[in-house]
Lab assay of single mutants.
Amino acid sequence: PQEEYKKRAKKALKKGDEDTAREALKRAGLSPDQAEEFIRRFL
């Protein structure tokens, strides 16, 4: 589910792994723009 992928993305970002985070967010159904926004907000 979407929440699970978002959790995964946050874990990846904590490790500084933005590529894995983007992949997880893409799987969560976010557009690339939404994924970038999510990452920017998190960092």
Rank of each mutant, 00 (worst) to 15 (best):
residue 16 G to A: 04
residue 11 K to G: 06
residue 15 K to L: 14
residue 9 A to I: 04
residue 36 E to A: 08
residue 20 T to N: 07
residue 30 L to E: 01
residue 35 A to R: 06
residue 34 Q to R: 05
residue 6 K to G: 04
residue 2 Q to A: 13
residue 2 Q to F: 11
residue 2 Q to S: 13
residue 17 D to V: 02
residue 32 P to H: 10
residue 23 E to R: 09
residue 1 P to A: 14
residue 36 E to R: 05
residue 35 A to N: 01
residue 33 D to K: 10
residue 38 F to S: 01
residue 2 Q to T: 11
residue 11 K to E: 15
residue 13 L to W: 03
residue 19 D to R: 13
residue 14 K to F: 10
residue 23 E to S: 07
residue 30 L to W: 06
residue 4 E to R: 10
residue 43 L to Y: 15
residue 18 E to G: 08
residue 22 R to W: 05
residue 6 K to L: 15
residue 26 K to E: 09
residue 34 Q to D: 10
residue 24 A to T: 07
residue 20 T to K: 10
residue 28 A to Y: 05
residue 32 P to W: 09
residue 37 E to W: 06
residue 31 S to E: 07
residue 1 P to M: 15
residue 10 K to D: 05
residue 12 A to W: 05
residue 20 T to Q: 09
residue 6 K to F: 15
residue 25 L to R: 00
residue 10 K to L: 15
residue 29 G to Y: 02
residue 1 P to T: 14
residue 30 L to D: 00
residue 7 K to I: 12
residue 22 R to M: 06
residue 19 D to V: 13
residue 8 R to S: 10
residue 12 A to G: 02
residue 18 E to Q: 13
residue 2 Q to V: 13
residue 7 K to P: 01
residue 21 A to F: 02
residue 20 T to D: 07
residue 13 L to R: 01
residue 29 G to D: 03
residue 20 T to S: 11
residue 30 L to F: 12
residue 31 S to A: 08
residue 32 P to R: 09
residue 6 K to P: 03
residue 42 F to G: 03
residue 23 E to T: 07
residue 42 F to N: 06
residue 7 K to L: 12
residue 8 R to P: 02
residue 17 D to F: 04
residue 3 E to I: 08
residue 4 E to G: 08
residue 40 R to Q: 11
residue 27 R to H: 13
residue 18 E to H: 13
residue 33 D to W: 11
residue 35 A to W: 03
residue 4 E to Y: 15
residue 11 K to C: 13
residue 30 L to P: 00
residue 24 A to R: 03
residue 10 K to H: 11
residue 13 L to H: 01
residue 5 Y to I: 04
residue 23 E to A: 11
residue 1 P to C: 05
residue 13 L to V: 03
residue 38 F to V: 04
residue 29 G to F: 03
residue 2 Q to C: 10
residue 7 K to Q: 12
residue 36 E to D: 12
residue 4 E to H: 11
residue 26 K to D: 06
residue 36 E to S: 07
residue 26 K to Q: 10
residue 26 K to L: 13
residue 40 R to P: 00
residue 28 A to M: 06
residue 6 K to N: 04
residue 32 P to C: 05
residue 41 R to M: 13
residue 18 E to P: 11
residue 18 E to A: 12
residue 38 F to P: 00
residue 17 D to M: 06
residue 39 I to G: 00
residue 22 R to G: 02
residue 36 E to C: 14
residue 38 F to G: 00
residue 7 K to N: 12
residue 13 L to N: 01
residue 20 T to A: 14
residue 25 L to I: 02
residue 7 K to Y: 08
residue 2 Q to I: 13
residue 20 T to M: 08
residue 8 R to D: 12
residue 27 R to D: 10
residue 13 L to P: 01
residue 15 K to S: 13
residue 43 L to M: 09
residue 42 F to M: 06
residue 43 L to F: 12
residue 14 K to R: 14
residue 30 L to G: 00
residue 27 R to Y: 10
residue 12 A to I: 02
residue 15 K to E: 15
residue 5 Y to V: 04
residue 16 G to R: 05
residue 2 Q to M: 13
residue 37 E to F: 05
residue 9 A to V: 04
residue 41 R to F: 10
residue 22 R to P: 00
residue 21 A to D: 00
residue 4 E to F: 14
residue 20 T to W: 06
residue 10 K to N: 07
residue 28 A to Q: 02
residue 1 P to K: 14
residue 23 E to M: 07
residue 6 K to A: 08
residue 43 L to D: 05
residue 38 F to H: 02
residue 42 F to Y: 12
residue 30 L to Q: 02
residue 15 K to G: 10
residue 25 L to P: 00
residue 24 A to P: 00
residue 39 I to Y: 01
residue 27 R to P: 01
residue 35 A to C: 07
residue 1 P to G: 13
residue 36 E to T: 07
residue 31 S to W: 04
residue 33 D to Y: 09
residue 16 G to L: 04
residue 36 E to W: 04
residue 26 K to T: 09
residue 7 K to A: 13
residue 15 K to F: 09
residue 28 A to G: 07
residue 23 E to Q: 08
residue 34 Q to E: 14
residue 1 P to F: 14
residue 35 A to K: 02
residue 31 S to H: 06
residue 12 A to M: 05
residue 10 K to M: 15
residue 43 L to T: 09
residue 29 G to A: 03
residue 31 S to V: 03
residue 30 L to I: 04
residue 14 K to Y: 11
residue 28 A to T: 04
residue 30 L to M: 12
residue 33 D to H: 09
residue 42 F to D: 02
residue 22 R to C: 02
residue 39 I to R: 00
residue 19 D to K: 14
residue 18 E to Y: 15
residue 7 K to F: 07
residue 35 A to I: 15
residue 4 E to C: 08
residue 8 R to N: 09
residue 39 I to H: 00
residue 31 S to L: 07
residue 26 K to N: 08
residue 11 K to H: 13
residue 24 A to H: 15
residue 20 T to P: 01
residue 36 E to P: 00
residue 33 D to I: 11
residue 11 K to P: 00
residue 8 R to V: 14
residue 23 E to K: 09
residue 37 E to Q: 08
residue 43 L to I: 09
residue 27 R to A: 14
residue 42 F to R: 03
residue 2 Q to P: 11
residue 20 T to L: 09
residue 21 A to I: 03
residue 6 K to W: 14
residue 40 R to W: 09
residue 37 E to P: 00
residue 9 A to S: 02
residue 38 F to Q: 02
residue 18 E to N: 08
residue 6 K to Q: 09
residue 17 D to H: 06
residue 42 F to S: 04
residue 22 R to T: 03
residue 13 L to Y: 02
residue 43 L to R: 13
residue 19 D to E: 13
residue 21 A to S: 02
residue 34 Q to H: 05
residue 16 G to W: 03
residue 21 A to L: 02
residue 27 R to M: 15
residue 37 E to L: 07
residue 21 A to N: 00
residue 34 Q to I: 05
residue 5 Y to N: 06
residue 21 A to Q: 00
residue 34 Q to S: 06
residue 11 K to L: 14
residue 10 K to R: 14
residue 16 G to P: 01
residue 13 L to I: 05
residue 27 R to T: 08
residue 31 S to G: 06
residue 9 A to P: 02
residue 12 A to S: 05
residue 25 L to A: 01
residue 17 D to N: 06
residue 31 S to M: 06
residue 28 A to P: 00
residue 3 E to D: 11
residue 10 K to Y: 14
residue 33 D to Q: 13
residue 7 K to H: 08
residue 28 A to S: 06
residue 18 E to I: 15
residue 40 R to L: 09
residue 19 D to L: 12
residue 9 A to E: 01
residue 36 E to L: 06
residue 37 E to N: 07
residue 41 R to K: 12
residue 16 G to I: 02
residue 40 R to H: 09
residue 16 G to Y: 04
residue 39 I to A: 01
residue 27 R to L: 15
residue 39 I to D: 00
residue 43 L to H: 11
residue 37 E to A: 10
residue 33 D to M: 12
residue 25 L to M: 03
